[in-house]
Design a protein around this nucleic acid. Structure first.
Lengths: 189, 189
DNA sequence: CTCCGATGTTGACAGTGTCAACTTAGGTCG
DNA sequence: CGACCTAAGTTGACACTGTCAACATCGGAG
């Protein structure tokens, strides 16, 4: 019986936007099409997002939150600190492979801290988790620098993999390669 | 006396497009604005590019060509193979810092080999240079895998640096960090 | 029960990518 | 030397987009 008010339009819009990006690419993300797919008028999204960029910032925030959660979950439990760090890195790459739309949006624009504080907070949060893992795995060793190294490594792998720059055929191959690369870097650190 | 024909419109359009991206971001790249800045009608670009995507592919091709050249130049000359590989990697990061507009476009879209063969060729070419460097530096050691590791490393650094994800203040800081990271990875390889 | 704020709608405007049809410049060939 | 062909550029149009202003409606607080 479709009431005048939607109920949870914001979430529906975010989901529709991600779907659209998956189907047609981030270039052809359209606020109007997102509204259409959510069964709502063209300007309804403006009750939940300031403008189009704010919508993508919402996707980015969602992505950083999920990424942080999945890394924490993967790195949790028992095992040596180094082993747990590896699991965290693996989760980073796995996230990018499973949700390439989120991942691309998250790093497409340098999201302005003033305009999108929630997204920035979620991002900082995820990085803080990584920092903790690195600190535990390599104590007394300039943790910030080492964390940046680890981040660069998995980020490069993730970016190039979803951009199809490597010639890997399966996600399993990507993950196996990531494992190898992380081992090599860890040895050198 | 502004002749009817432009002379080298294609190059002018590419340059205007890069300028526009630098000033306003890749999102607001507009074929019409590019045409306007080149002093030409709105549809003139279609004589040189099939569509908007083809224009960005042109920028990407230009970028890959420059990148390949600069890496080769940096890695040339004398020095131990490892040392030359380092110089190549450093050139990769330096390229991204100096030409972030090119760099972003190059990796924004997974450029279709069928639609944009020239861009793909230029990209393959640049990677081939890296592969040669790695092979010389680490003989008898699965060069493809090692090259991918090196590429991931510098690519991650470049991407995160120009996306302002690190909190570095100067380009020199970024390059110094890159040096450190490359050393660490090389030790582990 | 009333009324007000949050949520949603309609209509409009400027700007965009792209197509079809037309024009012009400048070199090729009889 | 003049006719003409093609590459390069133009004009006008269409459907679509982001966004604004003005209006409508629901649902909960008093």
């Amino acid at each position: 019986m479709k009431s005048y008010h939607h109920g949870d339009l914001r979430a529906a819009l975010l989901a529709a936007a991600v779907d659209l990006i998956r189907e047609a690419g981030a270039e052809s993300l359209s606020l109007r099409e997102v509204a259409r797919r959510s069964g709502v008028s063209q300007t309804a999204p403006y009750r939940h997002f300031r403008d189009k960029e704010d919508l993508t910032a919402g996707i980015a925030e969602e992505g950083f939150t999920i990424l942080g959660d999945e890394m924490r979950k993967a790195a949790g439990g028992d095992g040596a600190p180094r082993e747990r760090l590896m699991r965290g890195g693996r989760a980073y790459v796995a996230f990018a492979l499973k949700r390439p739309e989120h991942f691309k949006v998250m790093f497409a624009t340098d999201l302005d801290a003033k305009r999108h504080p929630a997204a920035r907070t979620a991002a900082d949060n995820a990085f803080a988790g990584l920092l903790a893992l690195v600190t535990a795995a390599f104590p007394k060793r300039a943790p910030l620098t080492l964390a940046r190294m680890a981040w660069s490594q998995v980020h490069g792998i993730a970016t190039l993999a979803i951009g199809k720059q490597f010639r890997f055929r399966t996600q399993a191959e990507v993950l196996a390669f990531a494992e190898e690369a992380m081992q090599a870097l860890a040895r050198g650190m």
